[in-house]
Amino acid sequence: MDYWKSGKFPYIGLVGDFDWQERFGITDSLEGFRDHYRVNVEFPWAKDIADKARNLTVSQPVFPNLAESFLVTSGVQESLKHAFEVFQDEREQLFRSAQENLDYALRHIVPPIDFGRLLLPPNLRDYSDEVSPAEVLDFVEGEAIPMYLVPRGRTAIRLIHAETRSERRAILGDRYTTIIDDCADVLEACEHKIIRSEVEFAVEALEAMRAGYNRTAQGMLTVLLDSIVGSFYPGKEKRTITNRKKEHDPPELLLEMSIRESLVWLPIWNAHEAFWPYKGDPVPHYYSRHASVHAVSRKQFNKRNCVQALMLVTSLLGYANHLACSLD
């Protein structure tokens, strides 16, 4: 899937408008170029023309024919030709000097911009040398594990580099406690009033997990996820998010999203993989919203699936908080 077709990049505008000459400290260099041009090109050229003009003896003859006219004016032509040759040489030298100064500025003055780092979510920006934005997008396209805000960078790197779903689930179990802590930090930072109620329920589920009631928490988090998704997409579009058919590519709604939005919504879409008990679909061992609601069982309700549901809710609430704060 080509995530770049939409041309939407959430970090465009991060730097903002500014005066490039001043920002990169090359104003002085450009002034130097202009001084060099005036001293070494304009002044010598003008002086050369003036000297040659003084040496010319041109009266006001009556030209009997074009041949005589050409002979009289040939001296002026030669002077102008020589002057323009000097000007061309000086111009080429100036441009070479300007290019050398600009190359130096780009190498030594302008700070390098790591665009890959800017495109990564905040929890992964310190790991731009270990993972690329394309790898993160590829991961969330196929998993119901979010990468936006949670989990912490080192855990996220382990999950992305794991080769199988079994390995990823093992990591979820191994990092169960630290992932809860990561989610607690993000939820604590969600201060906007518009999501206050949802954050309270998420924190209550999180505390239930810490107390050992992960099944209770998974039920709460699954219902809460439904509620928040419905707040974002109250109409027919909700079915686009909550109706993930097996072996189908993401819908156009998701393809048109920015990178940040994709990191939030693709895992939620994957968590809504089709599950039809009456068709004989087996209960999956990995987290499934539909199985959690329609097939309550020990196979579906477990610590790994619970912490996965917590991550989905936390990532979505963190995104909602950021969006609401930016619109204030």
Rank of each mutant, 00 (worst) to 15 (best):
K52N: 11
E90Y: 01
N65V: 10
V313H: 00
C306S: 15
M1K: 09
N270R: 12
M257G: 05
Y148N: 12
A67P: 01
E237M: 09
F95C: 08
R298P: 06
P61T: 12
F43I: 15
A320T: 08
S288M: 05
P122G: 07
V15F: 03
L102N: 06
D103I: 10
I228F: 07
T178S: 15
E135W: 02
F70H: 09
D35S: 12
D35C: 01
A291S: 08
R169G: 05
L187Y: 02
S197D: 15
L224W: 06
E85R: 10
D328A: 07
L172R: 00
I241V: 15
Y127F: 15
Q93M: 12
F63S: 13
H290I: 12
I180G: 09
L80R: 06
P146N: 09
D328Q: 13
H161I: 01
G13T: 08
R196Y: 03
T240H: 00
Y148H: 11
L225E: 02
R168Y: 02
P112K: 14
G153V: 09
A324M: 07
T222R: 00
G13M: 03
Q93P: 00
D328G: 15
N243P: 00
P251T: 08
C325M: 13
P64M: 08
I12L: 12
A46E: 14
N305C: 06
V62K: 12
P282E: 14
P44G: 05
H36I: 00
D51F: 09
G116H: 06
R304F: 06
D226W: 03
T155D: 07
W45T: 15
I26T: 01
A83V: 13
P133K: 02
L316Y: 05
Y286C: 03
Y37S: 05
V72K: 10
L118S: 03
I194T: 15
V307C: 04
E92F: 04
E256S: 14
D48K: 12
L124E: 03
D126I: 07
L56E: 11
V39E: 14
P111R: 10
Q218S: 07
N214D: 13
Y176H: 12
S262W: 00
Y176R: 10
W4P: 00
V140P: 03
T155K: 06
S197H: 09
P251M: 08
Q308K: 03
D249E: 12
L310S: 04
W265V: 03
K8T: 09
W45Q: 10
S326M: 11
L66D: 10
G142L: 06
R152W: 03
K279H: 09
